[in-house]
Design a protein around this nucleic acid. Structure first.
Lengths: 418, 418
DNA sequence: ACTCTTTGTTGGGGCAACGCCCAAACTAAG
DNA sequence: CTTAGTTTGGGCGTTGCCCCAACAAAGAGT
């Protein structure tokens, strides 16, 4: 709930803060609404052309903006559109999961610049070793960015588990088998990094990645992420809701069927026992079916389920229908509480969601108090399993939009005197 | 989720905005942390003493602050503490409920200045008539404030039902029997008011009233409000979460027992069928028991339940235990999703909550993923049935803290030249 | 009485946005 | 080809507001 990444101490506003704010505003506006001239930027932001001119020239010096192409729209002097400069700075996102560590670098425009992945079995390795591998990947990524001449502005790491922001510690990571691991401190030490390193729950980051700046339907969203476990994230007004300790979004263990099936967490009737991937597989296939074989890759299992559903296999369709109904029931509970504009389905939900969608929407409409007004859209994520790293990279970049002056100023023309 | 009361258009920051922000900051700091000298205010806010001096003198001119008493703490010149001026401005809160309309005026310090209540049966009256009665109450309240020399800065009205902020309309008010009533527009017309009139869901306002500025445990809270129906509100980082259409907090119709009891809304297994006041009464007493008689006042019924529980009546205690367990289960669902610092019980929960508390806390601990770390406190509200009006008045006052320059400047000494 | 310490106020300097003006660049005529 | 009209982008002076430094005020300690 409280935004853990921003200082809560009330500090007075001075002139440099005004500058910071307006630079960030211009930058954000160009990100959210696309390239445009200095003049139209001025009218959009309610500032004078002269002010915008100085703002833009400073942002160009910091290599955050660049002069784009001339557009002559009708009468008058043609305008030179300014746009986000992709080559200046990049943010890095990373992920620590059970079977891999990975990184992704995004430029200011949100385009993927670098991507790296290393398969490993986190459960059989020591935490410091896994973090060492991740640090290697990050170093390679940074080196790649240096080669391109881009500055790295930050690293945000998503981990599978509960991450306590106030103690900077992964307190509960049952999937990884990690408990009370100070991931942030270890990575900062290993990297000796010149940029800030932030760690967060991977569900939170995946949720943040679903926010589309500028799209009002993508500002208040509920993200439901299905794998074996079920989690997600809540985004309110474009801001991620983390909760008082950063544990918000643990939807999988909502009790939806008192006295129901046994859950791995020790309780009964948790939502993930009926809406997780395991529930789907057990309903859809006999124990000796290849898709129930743990050796089979996740993507292949989901592809096989889609294939069977496409062939109208009755049992598969019924399983998707039943699980979809449970997903919809849980979604309705949360929609009543949060009234999101959009529910975004990620993880395995996104992969097989087009076959569960009708059941989900039916149960959602049935369970929400006022379905007609304030109707909630259901959408499938297109980010796939890269949502968390993308969200991390986006979060890293966010600091640039919050304070563009943190990026060093360079003379527009090379060879200038210091 | 999105804050519906603040503009989303990105506007450039200019110098007057700096002033506004810093004036508000100083005001808020004094509200949250109590009276203090200009000098300590300066160190707290990271500003210079000179700046604070000018800020404070402007706030005094606007009758928002006043010089308090001299305190001499050890060596040095004694300081004059400045504190919120209660006599300058007041905010009004109002409530439209089934059996009454009421108003409350709070001064800047949060002290009650005026309070009015009119009993009526909203169901048997026309909406415009009820609103007319409320307008009368508001006019009386404003007149009372005028007599005291205080300026009214705003009116915020809580209504029982779903209020769509974008359309400024009560879309669903089943308890009142009101549908698609433009409460805000009608009141603005009736009052011809010189101050802004805002309408909101009463659950939201009651939730906002539970925020204690400055108390970190009261910034991320989940408010559960029990009457016949069950609702509540979510506060995140001190900001009320309204949802994309302002419908957040409709907890009563979360389905917690699929296929369970029939609910008044037409569905089965809604939370309020097992956690609402009706469930408690039906479990605790036979149909011919006086507390089941609709003619008996709510307060009296609750007093009687408390009396029986105090006498260790087995059936009463069992009913409180059973309902408490259901309340705890729902609370756990929401706590997993939101990770609040505190769960505040209001309405009838606050009245008989000390007998349900152990059951609630037990189920909460059983149902939350990580009860040890990030433990959520359970507290009973002390605001009683006045929570909504108080929250409304607080919300009205909030605009003063956001922009103190909206309050007219008056010369400190009377008789000054215009 | 004198020094020391802290408070609150006053004037000067600087930063950043605003308003106004002007050169530049292009279109649309005549 | 020339001229008027329109829009863009940047330069210059003004204004608002915060910071810094200096100073008067009001006590405590010796």
């Amino acid at each position: 709930m409280s935004n853990l990444h921003q200082s809560v101490s009330d500090q007075g506003l001075a002139h440099p803060d005004v500058r910071r704010s307006n630079l960030g505003l211009a930058l954000r506006h160009l990100r959210d609404h696309g390239p445009r001239s200095r003049a139209s930027l001025a009218t959009d932001l309610g500032m004078t052309r002269s002010t915008v001119s100085t703002l833009v020239s400073e942002l160009i010096e910091r290599r955050l903006l660049t002069d784009g192409q001339l557009v002559q729209s009708g009468v008058g002097r043609p305008s030179t559109a300014v746009e986000l400069d992709g080559r200046g700075v990049c943010g890095i996102g990373a992920e620590i999961n059970v079977n891999h560590v990975s990184t992704m670098a995004l430029d200011l425009r949100g385009d993927v610049v670098e991507e790296r992945k290393l398969a490993l079995d986190a459960r059989s390795l020591d935490a410091s070793l896994v973090l060492g591998h991740l640090a290697d990947l990050v170093r390679e990524t940074v080196a790649g960015l240096d080669e391109r001449g881009a500055t790295t502005v930050g690293l945000t790491v998503g981990v599978a588990g509960l991450y306590d922001q106030t103690r900077d510690m992964l307190t509960h990571g049952p999937n990884l088998g990690w408990y009370d691991v100070p991931v942030g401190a270890i990575l900062r030490r290993d990297l000796g990094a010149a940029f800030p390193v932030v760690v967060d729950n991977e569900g939170n980051l995946a949720a943040a990645a679903e926010v589309t700046p500028g799209d009002p339907g993508r500002q208040d969203i509920l993200v439901l992420h299905g794998e074996i476990g079920v989690g997600g994230g809540i985004v309110s007004g474009g801001r991620l809701l983390r909760g008082s300790h950063g544990y918000a979004g643990e939807f999988g263990h909502m009790i939806v069927e008192p006295g129901g099936r046994q859950c791995g967490c020790g309780r009964q009737g948790c939502w993930e026992t009926v809406s997780g991937l395991r529930a789907l597989l057990e309903m859809a296939a006999d124990p000796d079916d290849p898709i129930r074989n743990p050796a089979m890759a996740l993507d292949d299992r989901l592809a096989e389920i889609n294939r069977r559903a496409h062939l109208s296999d009755a049992r598969t369709l019924q399983a998707l229908e039943d699980v979809g109904a449970w997903v919809g029931l849980g979604a309705a509970i949360l929609a009543n509480a949060l009234n999101p504009a959009t529910i975004v389905l990620t993880g395995y939900y996104a992969a097989v969601g087009h076959h569960m969608r009708s059941a989900i929407e039916r149960e959602l409409r049935a369970g929400v108090l006022a379905p007609d007004s304030g109707g909630t859209r259901v959408e499938l994520s297109t980010l796939g399993f890269r949502a968390a790293v993308r969200g991390g990279a986006t979060a890293s970049l966010e600091s640039v939009f919050a304070d563009p002056t943190q990026v060093p100023r360079r003379a527009a023309v090379a060879g200038a005197v210091v």
